[in-house]
């Protein structure tokens, strides 16, 4: 009885969501082509939702960012990013407090998978690290940014961890570099914010423009901010995974 009630409730909610999607939004064939990077006239066509009619059509002049959401979120509302970084920092500190990792690493068995998995992992992970670094460093021009890039780097390290075991992974990137990356990222975000004072703007507001839109160095502040967030997210995720794997006994 209860299961049938829950199932019917889920079906009704799903149908409602699908109906709401099609009553409020235009059909997908009528969406205008929205190029990600239009360097010729520096505009982004509006996407057609009625709720976004008042949204700006192009990012503010001279920001060096092709996407209006990226420009606002990383340029003018970097407080949001700092808040997310604080949330991640707090959760990592909580996990490490719950499972203190001192001396637990030697208790772990050296467990690896078969040679097929090891070969595939060793062939795959360099490209994953490269892809994560690309997503972090080009976060102001292409989709992505600090958070997905950092998570991809952490996932690449997780593949090594699963294939070769925890002790091998900790001998390559251990606890101390992860903690240093986490704290260095947190410090870098605040330092970037304070550096805005010396360039004539406010805390975490955009500064340091070099080059035109489309260049790599079009907005150095967003690049440094993405790098800091990527470092912080990669370190934090790896710390959480390492701590959960090693602290509660065995592998």
């Amino acid at each position: 009885m209860q299961e049938k009630f829950a199932l019917s409730l889920a079906v009704i909610v799903g149908l409602f969501l699908i109906l709401a999607l099609y009553s409020g939004a235009p059909s997908f064939g009528s969406f205008p082509d929205r190029p990600l990077l239009d360097t010729e006239d520096n505009t982004i066509p509006s996407i057609g939702f009625p709720i976004l009619e008042g949204a700006p059509e192009k990012p503010p002049d001279g920001l060096g960012v092709p996407n209006v959401v990226t420009g606002v979120l990383w340029g003018y509302r970097a407080y949001d990013t700092m808040g997310e970084a604080t949330v991640l920092f707090t959760s990592v500190v909580g996990v490490i407090m719950l499972g203190s990792h001192t001396g637990m690493l030697s208790l772990c068995k050296v467990v690896g998978m078969t040679v097929i998995v090891k070969t595939v992992a060793s062939l795959l992970t360099p490209f994953l690290f490269l892809f994560g670094g690309y997503i972090v460093l080009y976060g102001h021009l292409t989709p992505g940014g600090g958070f997905p890039g950092g998570v991809i780097i952490a996932a690449a390290m997780t593949i090594i961890l699963l294939a070769y075991g925890v002790r091998f992974a900790c001998s390559r990137i251990g606890f101390i570099p992860c903690e240093m990356g986490e704290e260095l990222g947190a410090i870098m975000i605040v330092v970037i914010g304070i550096a805005g004072f010396f360039t004539g703007t406010y805390f975490l507001q955009p500064w340091a423009f070099f080059g035109e839109l489309g260049d790599l160095l079009s907005n150095v502040k967003i690049i440094i901010l993405n790098f800091a967030v990527g470092l912080k997210v990669a370190g934090g995720m790896l710390l959480i995974i390492y701590t959960l794997l090693t602290s509660f006994g065995g592998e």
Partner: peptide, 26 residues
């Protein structure tokens, strides 16, 4: 498909990568 490639990247990396590892560990 909904033209949010930013969120798609994050969802793929977190949802299929990290959360799977954490849940398998749990």
């Amino acid at each position: 498909v909904l033209q949010a490639p930013d969120i798609a990247l994050t969802q793929a990396a977190v949802g299929a990568g990290v959360s799977t590892v954490l849940l398998v560990n749990a």
